[in-house]
Nucleic acid binder design. Structure first.
Lengths: 147, 147
DNA sequence: ACTAACACTACTAAATAGATAGAGATTAAG
DNA sequence: CTTAATCTCTATCTATTTAGTAGTGTTAGT
């Protein structure tokens, strides 16, 4: 399961992606429209800001907006920021590789082989689906990415 | 990430699958050969037993062995027993469906659509890979399951 | 200056993960 | 039939993570 926090992050980003150009959205507006606890959302957006996904304007008339284009923000990228590694085993993670406890021979590990397939399949989807794709026409989203 | 417990379960099952017919393996042997805390493994095997995956013999000369054939035990099945639902969102789980908090229209949810693909891909792999497959010749394991 | 907005840090409660402890039940062997 | 080996079961424990709350600080528009 992905965390509640990650779900909130996706909801917020989808909301921001639907804004018109140069329009901003306040934390409290996103919080109420997306059913997210305001103070929690604050932290999430701040985190996304630090990672270069969104930007903010302070003071009156301030708010949040995307920094990158919606078509440049992948689900994988966001999930890694909020929830950490996508790989189901530490030994399969690119961003946080670690040998599994008590595993001597990684190359021979049968468990690793099976979950390597899962990881590949998951990455192919999440790293090739952007916020823009998700908002776009559902029919289009089903067209294979690799022609 | 799958839990440490699930990793232990897989290691134990792979070890049991490598036994000769009618041979049994003691918890302590599996624990020491697979680097698993013994008392923890006890609980895991008991759980697998209750779910009809392994069987046990008590008393002297006792131990554990598989109940089902290694070619009938899928990774998905084991993972569901130990870690619970495979789906990354509650609204995508078959075994433990639940509406996501604050989600009104499930059919329209863009997040759900993206993660539905992840879930399908993951299930295809985990529900079609058995303990026997994992132990078998690695070349064979790469042959697509659906011809 | 006032006020509306984001920024930051710290704290907390509940759940989960990863065990550990110890008494009980069963069985083989002497 | 007693002993020792082995699985069975329930309870407990600690650390970490999750999900959130609180409060103070900073910035910007009017």
């Amino acid at each position: 399961m992905i965390s509640q926090k990650a779900q909130y992050a996706f909801r917020a980003l989808l909301a921001l992606a639907r804004l018109d150009d140069d329009e901003v959205s306040m934390i409290s507006d996103i919080a109420s429209s997306q059913n997210i606890p305001k103070k929690f959302l604050e932290q999430i957006l701040l985190d996304l800001k630090r990672h270069g996904i969104v930007q903010s304007r302070r003071g009156k008339m301030g708010g949040y907006l995307l920094l990158k284009g919606a078509n440049e923000i992948t689900f994988g990228e966001v999930l890694r920021i909020i929830d950490g590694p996508i790989a189901p085993l530490p030994c399969l993670s690119k961003m946080a590789y670690r040998k599994c406890d008590g595993c001597d021979d990684e190359e021979a590990c049968e468990i690793r082989k099976v979950f390597a397939k899962v990881t590949d399949a998951t990455r192919k989807i999440l790293d090739n689906t952007t916020i823009a794709d998700a908002i776009a026409d559902p029919e289009k989203a089903d067209i294979p990415l690799i022609a």
